[in-house]
Every structure is written in C-alpha cells, then in structure tokens.
C-alpha cells in the first residue's frame, strides 16, 4: 500500500531547485488557466477528482514479478476537469501525500513536474488529438482516454530519466536506467489506461455534461448544451481545438 513517488535524495540540489522553479511557474500558470475551467458546478467536481486520485493512488496493482504500480492520474484529471485544473489536482494530491511521508518534500517540484505537468501535457494532448480524428461517439472517448493515459506514464518515466541525466545522485548507465524505467512504466501505463478509461467512461455515461473532455468536442452527441443551460465552455477561451 506504500505508493512511492520520487523520494528525497535521488537528485542533486540544482535539479531539485530547478524543478521546483518549473513547478512553481507551472502552478502559477495553471491557477490563471483554471479560472476558465472552473465554475460553480465544476469546482466541486475538481475537488472530488483530486480526492478520488488520492484514493486511487493507494491502490498498487501488480505488474509482473515483484513489481507494482499505481495510477498517476494526470490524464484522468485533465480529461475530467481540464488540463490547467488537472495539474492543480495532482499538485494538491502530492502536497497532501507529503504528510503521509510519500514523495520527498525536497522532491516536490520534481514530482509536480513529472506527474503533474508532463503527464497532463502528454496524456491530455494525445486525448485531444485522438478526439479530433476519431468519430464522435462514446467509444472514442474511451479509446482516447485509454491511449492518452497509457502514454503519459512512460512519458513521465522518460522525463525522470532526463532529469536523472542532468542531476541524478548516482553515476549509472543512462541507457540501462532508461530501458528499465520505460519498460516497467509501459506496463503500469496499461493499468493507468484501464483505470482512466473506466472512470471517464462511467462518468461520461451518467453525466457527460460534467466531463471537460467531452463537452469540448463540438459534434459529440453526448452533451447537454443549449441556451437554457449554463455555458459549458467559455467562447474562444483557447481550449477548443483549431
């Protein structure tokens, strides 16, 4: 049940501080962007999404012999409540987890960068890309959620290796670390994809109007939107695909 993130001591001070600066800038940017994503209905959903991710991260599932993995949740949060709010969700979860001695305090910036910023950017990016090319129906939402979530995990692992190359505290063959990190995280990514697709699919089945990634797709037949309803999306707020 110990869900371990990057602990203290894996990275030298410059990389830890540098990642802290990146994380702080990212959180600042997301606080601005999240304003466009959050209203009276979606703000409580975003809080619940963060709480759900905290819970889901406690569930380590086995991936091969003697190894486990758990949800990261970046893609899930971004699809449910929007990418800016998604990064904030992960940052809140990581903050609370430090009180459970999970994820080093000095590694907070690294964890926000890898699990928040990188996984949201990659996971949500792939989700939107697939939503743009796939037919507008419910199974496309599931496929796009699964794929975005799956790829976001090895992408974060690759970013970890990149940081390790810059300022890891052990002198190791980077190729070996990269191969090991990516191969195990592809397996964890499959679990991430399944959990994300099931969660997004379940919520989209009952309340498609609450799912950010669904309401953004103009031709989706799932959505409730008309003039009687609250505006689902702010016009030209930069979220709509070109």
């Amino acid at each position: 049940m110990r869900c371990v993130h990057v602990p203290n001591g894996f990275f030298d001070a410059p990389v830890s501080i540098g990642a802290g600066v990146v994380a702080a800038a990212g959180i600042g940017l997301c606080l601005k962007g999240a304003r466009r994503e959050l209203d009276d209905r979606t703000a409580p959903l975003a809080g619940l999404t963060a709480a759900f991710i905290f819970a889901a991260q406690m569930i380590n599932f086995p991936v091969g012999a003697g190894t486990s993995g758990h949800l990261m949740g970046g893609a899930l949060a971004a699809i449910l409540v929007g990418p800016y709010t998604g990064v904030l969700c992960i940052s809140v979860v990581l903050l609370v987890q430090t009180f459970f001695a999970d994820g080093g305090v000095t590694a907070y910036g690294i964890n926000v960068t890898l699990m928040g910023i990188v996984s949201v950017a990659v996971g949500y990016g792939i989700f939107r890309l697939l939503m743009a090319v796939l037919p507008k129906n419910r199974s496309s939402v599931t496929i796009a959620s699964f794929s975005g979530a799956l790829v976001s995990v090895p992408a974060s692992a690759l970013a970890f290796v990149g940081l390790f190359a810059l300022g890891g505290t052990a002198d190791l063959s980077l190729g070996a670390v990269a191969t090991a990190m990516i191969s195990v995280h592809v397996l964890i990514g499959i679990g991430e994809g399944v959990i994300t697709a099931v969660t997004v699919g379940s919520i989209a089945a009952v309340r498609p109007d609450l799912v950010h990634g669904v309401t953004l797709t103009p031709a989706a037949p799932l959505q409730l939107r008309n003039d009687a309803d609250l505006p689902v999306d702010t016009p030209a707020a930069g979220g709509v695909s070109a």
Binding site: M1, C3, V6, G66, G69, A180, M181
Partner: peptide, 17 residues
C-alpha cells in the same frame, strides 16, 4: 493493494540507486 515495490523503487533497487 500490492505490497511489492512500485516501478520506480524496483528500478532503483535493480540499478543500485
């Protein structure tokens, strides 16, 4: 939940960091 080390911990153990 599985009590096995997670992916990162496992790699850190195997690769010696």
């Amino acid at each position: 939940a599985s009590a096995s080390p997670d992916g990162l911990t496992k790699v850190a153990e195997d690769k010696g960091f």
